[in-house]
């Protein structure tokens, strides 16, 4: 090496990396930032529930059932068993977020692995994997989730398992199609021409370029997952009473809709706010990741 090169090594202008660029762009997106704040607030609420919540989420008094919003001591009223709604909504974030986010995270890893393998290897393996995935894809996700939970039996774990199974096929599909597209781009050909093994090419050249789009898609699925998880609980297939969970709360309060409609709608509102926030964040990520924009 020449002295000039050694000197050059010392002072190379580094461009900001891709992900720091994404962060910079998303930080300038007010809608995405707002959505992120909402999500962070929800998470903090879930984590610190015991310290924030004014009351015990399980103890109620039959004497003060279904109080309206604004009642002294119960700012958001009480539910059908006289428990503090505010407390239960705060605690509900724990199970609801867990039921909504965990299946997507697990499905993100499994689905990506299946899809990237199918997409990069191609040929018969691709056909075999993707046709199997298509079988699951043929059912509407709600129906599939209900059927799986029904078969596995109610409970948090079975609910999580069935939702994970529901989200693997769509993620694998997206992963397969972006990988197939990337595989045909010339830089992958150039890497093959340099003698790199399939595993190295996937690690260096494919993964970095496909994980972004898959991740964006997966964040968009969180809202669906939240709603499905609530739906399962609503049907009695997910979380069981008396656990506070928004979907389950919606179910148990459904008779109260004629008495205290605003109180009964509160869990639905929470589901709505959380899921739309994840959607907006996903949209923001999508545009922030677009290099040519």
């Amino acid at each position: 090496m020449t002295a000039a090169t050694l000197e050059a090594i010392a002072k190379v202008e580094k461009s900001p990396g891709y992900w720091s660029g994404v962060l910079r762009r998303i930080a300038r997106d007010p809608v995405a930032m707002f959505a992120l704040c909402v999500i962070v607030a929800m998470i903090l609420m879930a984590v610190f529930a015991p310290w924030i919540a004014p009351a015990d989420p399980y103890r109620g008094q039959m004497l003060r059932r279904l109080r309206p919003i604004g009642t002294a001591g119960f700012p958001l009223g009480t539910d059908e068993l006289g428990r503090d709604m505010l407390t239960r909504l705060i605690y509900g974030a724990r199970l609801s977020l867990m039921m909504g986010v965990t299946p997507v995270i697990i499905a993100f890893f499994i689905g990506s692995a299946i899809g990237i393998t199918a997409g990069y290897v191609g040929g018969k393996l691709n056909s075999a994997l993707m046709r199997t995935i298509d079988v699951f894809f043929a059912f509407p996700s709600v129906l599939l989730a209900i059927a799986l939970s029904g078969a596995l039996g109610a409970g948090i774990f079975n609910g999580l398992l069935s939702l994970t199974i529901v989200f693997i096929p769509p993620i694998a599909r997206i992963a397969e199609s972006v990988t197939t597209a990337v595989r045909k781009i010339e830089y992958v050909e150039a890497a093959r021409a340099s003698g790199a093994s399939g595993f190295t090419i996937v690690r260096v050249h494919v993964l970095g370029n496909v994980i972004g789009p898959i991740f964006v898609y997966a964040t968009g699925l969180i809202s669906v997952s939240l709603i499905l998880a609530s739906g399962l609980s609503f049907l009695g297939l997910g979380v069981k009473p008396p656990e506070p969970e928004w979907g389950l709360m919606l179910n148990t309060l459904r008779n109260a809709i004629y008495v205290q409609p605003w109180v009964a709608a509160l869990p639905g509102l929470m589901i709505f706010i959380t899921s739309i926030s994840f959607n907006l964040l996903s949209d923001g990520l999508r545009s922030a990741m677009d290099l040519k924009a």
Binding site: A191, S194, A196
Partner: peptide
């Protein structure tokens, strides 16, 4: 022909490192 996620020196040194 160039991986959008790699810097120029990473792109060139990839082959020799492999």
């Amino acid at each position: 022909s160039l991986n959008p996620r790699l810097t120029m020196e990473d792109a060139i040194s990839f082959g020799p490192m492999v």
